[in-house]
Design a protein around this nucleic acid. Sequence first.
DNA 1: TTGATTGGTTTAAATTTTTAAACGATTCAT
DNA 2: ATGAATCGTTTAAAAATTTAAACCAATCAA
Lengths: 110, 110
Amino acid sequence: MANLQVLQTEFANLSDFLIALGDEKRQAIIIALLANTCDGLRVTDLTEATNLSRPAVSHHLKILKQAHLIFSRSEGTKNYYYLSHNIQEIDDLKTLLDHVTAIINASGRK
Amino acid sequence: MANLQVLQTEFANLSDFLIALGDEKRQAIIIALLANTCDGLRVTDLTEATNLSRPAVSHHLKILKQAHLIFSRSEGTKNYYYLSHNIQEIDDLKTLLDHVTAIINASGRK
DNA sequence: TTGATTGGTTTAAATTTTTAAACGATTCAT
DNA sequence: ATGAATCGTTTAAAAATTTAAACCAATCAA
């Protein structure tokens, strides 16, 4: 039924995800990871792909990880970063968008 | 087919929209507008609904307007703000999310 | 016309975000 | 062990965002 209280909660829960997706640098990281989902990419790979410094990449990876967009695997000193194959937030965001359009349509018709 | 170039364009075109949606203050404005889509809300209404100052509300309204989320109508000195009833970006964002999941699923299966 | 109301803008300050330099910890090869 | 390589962290600086105070323009009522 999507009342406004539910909507507010959905919005709040998706803030980190939306902020993570909105930044162009992080979009570049996501796209680089999308291009290589087989064995993961390391920080140095991503610095080349994005023209960012290593600490900057590391920082954005942390934000993406907190937003549950990526995860990582360690082999010795090497860390491989992947996109999560099952991103719950994608479905949650679609649900939120559906709720918004439902409310807009309902009030427009009354 | 959603290759990566297309995806990059889709991402870039939605940056403003995603950034606009990610901020909690703007979420509060959106929710206030969702609660009243009949005759619109004025800046002073929104300052009460959000506990923001008038310049802050004005600033966020500008960002929301640039993201095509809202529009306004003037009656004399009074400006009424509405949610757009037809937000193209919502459909665009859903398309983008579908492309992302399609790519993730395709590579996970290979 | 005068005074009051509404609300956008500008400037500057405060806050947050982003970045880089330096450092530290761990692993691997020799 | 020793040296090299990988990469996260911390600190501080730079950049961007957000906010408020003050100001200005336009409209309306008297």
